[in-house]
Design a protein around this nucleic acid. Structure first.
Length: 522
RNA sequence: GGUCCGUUCGUCUAGCCAGGUCAGGACGCCAGGUUUUCAUCCUGGUAACACGGGUUCAAAUCCCGUACGGACUACCA
């Protein structure tokens, strides 16, 4: 009965509360694909449930600030097509959305916790604590600022009220620490992992408010999520160990906690550990959505955008790393994914990224794109090769060759011969296909094609094949030699489609050039 | 070391919560087919329940243990 009631009340609470989720990166560098995926799941969850998706910048650590990082993050989401409903640059009624701009309010919340006995002032310096840790380590023990140790340290729990007041008023640097309750069983519910239970004795008195006047992540995150009315916190698994602290903080404030979901990590493909920013390019594929140049070292890491991935293919691939729709669909748009998304179809274990599958996705998307769109992206590459091409012509070329390419940048390799007559002939192909009879046959073919009025693919194919049959030439021998003269190699689409596009004049010209270049083989 | 989390083909995964299917799909790889060539494409194949106990008529599925992997263990997020 009690269980039933619990379920019902939870249901009710869920349906009444507006769904609001946030992605809260700290601007310490470029966002890697794991971060993008976390944001994507938040976005999908919000869209699916008709909620709001918020971008909050967590810049409470001024020492780790990296210039350009915030702009990078915003640009990356723009490229991915992930749109925010509220946040930095976007605004909203719960702003400001950058924690450094909210600085003034956090101390009040820290004080509130001290006043209610849930937190206390600590005056130990960083150096003193380091020494403590070393001493403990020497005895093979681990120093923890907890109930057992705090009574031997410098804090308002051991000092008298007046002593504490004096220290505070004299401007002695201090931090505010959470007073972790003793022997308290913390029960938490995670949307992905279910029940997680931990005893508070293994937890420590985390710093909530730093001596530089800024809150730590733990305080800022709880205060802001509450103030911004966040309903679900969907974040990386690396936060799971601090979940008890966060839950206890909500309790201490007397606030309703949001629901939590801790996402499995994206793993390094070469085995060990979670993917990190430092993996840069050493893995042989980008770990960042956009190219990034470190402002300090000048070191550049490649991005998916610059590597030629389509944003929709990239996002699609990423979404399927840890989530699946429950049916066998793999290729779908952001809208379709949002429609299909649900937290309980997110897996529990970490995933390794597969570069081969990423390429396959891009190929799939490439086939779905219109020839016009691809041609527009291809045009600059053609111009780089020194060719001025007509858009209609490029579109037709793209239509013929796109199925054999994974990326737009592979298009030139597949279709260069449509724009430039072969400058050389692949020696292997010449050896294999330019035989004794080839010269005379191509001579005849030239004659034949110069007399054709309708140069459509269908018609030239009929005419040429009929001629080959009548003369009893080998189909393979003639066609390959012909291809060699048109393309310069034994590759490319249907040959009659090629010459139809090239046109009669160019076809004859290439035959002539080829005959001259390769000559008669004795 | 301590705490927590995890473990199905090489990779991404379905199946697990409500035990009973030859453990399904995709990428990759291999073979065959289509093609005048290369690629695409089509067909087929390859390959997995970490291990050990227990519960049960029956376990990938429930329970316990072991191993392995991972995260966390800062006045970083």
């Amino acid at each position: 009965m009690a269980f039933f009631y619990l379920c019902r009340s939870k249901q009710k609470q869920m349906s009444n509360r507006e769904i609001r989720v946030r992605f809260a990166p700290s601007p310490t560098g470029p966002l890697h694909i794991g971060g993008v995926r976390t944001a994507l799941y938040n976005y999908l969850f919000a869209k699916k449930n008709g909620g709001k998706f918020i971008l909050r910048i967590e810049d409470t650590d001024q020492t780790r600030f990296v210039s350009g990082a915030e702009e990078y993050i915003i640009e990356a989401f723009g490229w991915c097509g992930i749109r925010f409903d509220e946040g930095v640059t976007k605004g909203g009624k719960y702003g400001p959305y950058k924690q450094s701009e909210r600085k003034a309010m956090y101390s009040e919340y820290a004080e509130r916790l001290v006043a209610s006995g849930h937190a206390y002032y600590a005056f130990d310096t960083a150096e003193e604590l380091t020494t403590q840790r070393k001493n403990f380590e020497a005895e093979k023990k681990t120093f923890t600022y907890n109930a057992a140790e705090r009574k031997h340290l410098k804090n308002s729990l051991v000092f008298s009220k007046s002593e504490t007041q004096k220290l505070l008023q004299s401007g002695t640097p201090f931090v505010v620490r959470f007073k972790m309750p003793e022997d308290h069983v913390v029960r938490m519910h995670d949307l992905i992992r279910g029940e997680v239970i931990v005893n508070s004795n293994v937890l420590d008195d985390k710093v909530l408010f730093k001596s530089d006047g800024m809150p730590t992540y733990h305080l800022a995150n709880v205060v802001d999520d509450h103030l911004m009315k966040i309903s679900h916190v969907i974040r990386g698994e690396e936060w799971l160990p601090s979940l008890p602290l966060h839950v206890l903080l909500y309790e201490a404030f007397g606030w309703d906690a949001p629901q939590f979901a801790h996402l499995p990590l994206l793993l390094k493909p070469d085995g060990k550990g979670k993917l990190s920013k430092r993996d840069g390019d050493r893995l042989g594929f980008p770990v960042f959505p956009l190219q990034w140049t470190d402002p300090k070292t000048g070191e550049t890491s490649s991005g998916y955008r610059e590597s030629g991935y389509f944003p929709d293919a990239f996002v699609n691939m990423l979404a399927l790393l840890g989530w699946n729709p429950g049916d066998e669909r793999e290729v779908f748009s952001l809208e379709e994914m949002a429609e299909a998304f649900s937290i309980d179809r997110v897996g529990k274990s970490g995933s390794r990224f597969d570069p081969e599958k990423a390429k396959w996705f891009n190929h799939q998307y490439m086939q779905k794109k219109s020839n016009k769109e691809l041609a527009a992206q291809f045009l600059p590459l053609i111009e780089k090769e020194g060719v001025m091409a007509d858009m209609d012509y490029v579109e037709k070329v793209v239509g013929l060759v796109k199925e054999r390419a994974h990326f737009v940048h592979e298009l030139w390799e597949q279709s260069g011969f449509f724009f430039k007559a072969p400058a050389s002939f692949d020696p292997k192909a010449v050896k294999k296909r330019w035989k004794q009879a080839s010269y005379d046959q191509m001579m005849e073919l030239k004659e034949l094609l110069s007399g054709v009025g309708d140069f459509s693919s269908e018609n030239t194919e009929t005419v040429v094949k009929k001629w080959i049959e009548e003369k009893e030439y080998g189909m393979g021998a003639v066609m390959n030699a012909f291809r060699l003269l048109m393309v310069g190699a034994l590759k490319g689409p249907h040959l009659f489609d090629i010459i139809a596009l090239l046109g009669q004049e160019e076809t004859l010209r290439r035959l002539e050039i080829g005959l001259f270049e390769l000559g008669k083989k004795e």
